Amino acid sequence: SQTQRTQDENEARRIAEEWKRRGYDVEVRNRNGHWEVTWD
């Protein structure tokens, strides 16, 4: 799996939607004030 971090929730949601469209299983988490998008 791969993880991308961002400070911006909207960006995190956009990234998550992009990977979901490509057929990946995606998880979005808030950790210590930043957002992590993990896909595999």
Rank of each mutant, 00 (worst) to 15 (best):
S1W: 15
S1D: 08
S1V: 13
Q2I: 11
Q2A: 09
Q2D: 07
T3I: 13
T3E: 04
T3M: 11
T3D: 04
Q4D: 05
Q4M: 15
Q4N: 06
Q4P: 03
Q4A: 12
R5E: 08
T6D: 03
T6Y: 15
T6K: 03
T6N: 04
Q7M: 10
Q7W: 11
Q7A: 13
Q7C: 10
Q7H: 12
Q7N: 12
Q7L: 11
D8Y: 07
D8M: 04
D8H: 07
D8N: 10
E9W: 09
E9H: 05
E9T: 02
E9A: 07
N10I: 11
N10L: 12
N10G: 11
N10D: 13
N10P: 07
N10A: 14
E11N: 04
E11Q: 07
E11F: 04
E11D: 08
E11I: 07
E11A: 07
E11S: 07
A12I: 03
A12T: 01
A12G: 02
A12S: 02
A12V: 03
A12K: 01
R13K: 10
R13I: 10
R13E: 06
R13Q: 09
R13V: 08
R14M: 10
R14K: 12
R14D: 08
R14W: 07
I15W: 14
I15D: 02
I15M: 08
I15A: 03
I15N: 03
I15F: 06
A16K: 04
A16F: 05
E17D: 11
E17L: 09
E17K: 07
E18W: 13
E18A: 09
E18V: 09
E18S: 07
W19K: 08
W19N: 02
W19V: 05
W19F: 11
W19I: 07
W19A: 06
W19D: 01
K20L: 12
K20S: 10
K20G: 07
K20A: 12
K20Y: 08
K20I: 13
R21W: 05
R21D: 09
R21A: 14
R21E: 10
R22A: 09
R22F: 06
R22V: 05
R22Q: 09
G23I: 00
G23W: 01
G23M: 01
G23E: 02
Y24D: 01
Y24K: 04
Y24L: 04
Y24F: 10
Y24I: 05
D25H: 14
D25E: 12
D25R: 14
V26S: 04
V26Y: 02
V26E: 01
E27I: 14
E27D: 10
E27L: 11
E27W: 10
V28R: 00
V28T: 04
V28W: 03
V28I: 13
V28P: 01
V28F: 03
V28K: 01
R29W: 09
R29N: 11
R29F: 13
R29K: 12
R29S: 12
R29D: 05
N30D: 09
N30V: 11
R31I: 15
R31F: 13
R31C: 09
N32L: 06
N32Y: 08
N32M: 06
G33E: 05
G33S: 06
G33N: 06
G33R: 02
G33F: 02
G33L: 03
G33A: 03
H34A: 12
H34I: 15
H34T: 13
H34Q: 12
W35I: 02
W35Y: 05
W35R: 00
W35Q: 00
W35L: 01
W35A: 00
E36D: 04
E36P: 00
E36A: 03
E36W: 09
V37P: 00
V37L: 05
V37Y: 02
V37N: 00
T38L: 09
T38N: 06
T38K: 09
T38V: 12
T38R: 10
W39E: 02
W39V: 10
W39K: 05
W39F: 08
W39S: 04
D40Q: 15
D40C: 14
D40V: 15
D40P: 09
D40I: 15
D40M: 15
D40E: 13
D40L: 14
D40Y: 15
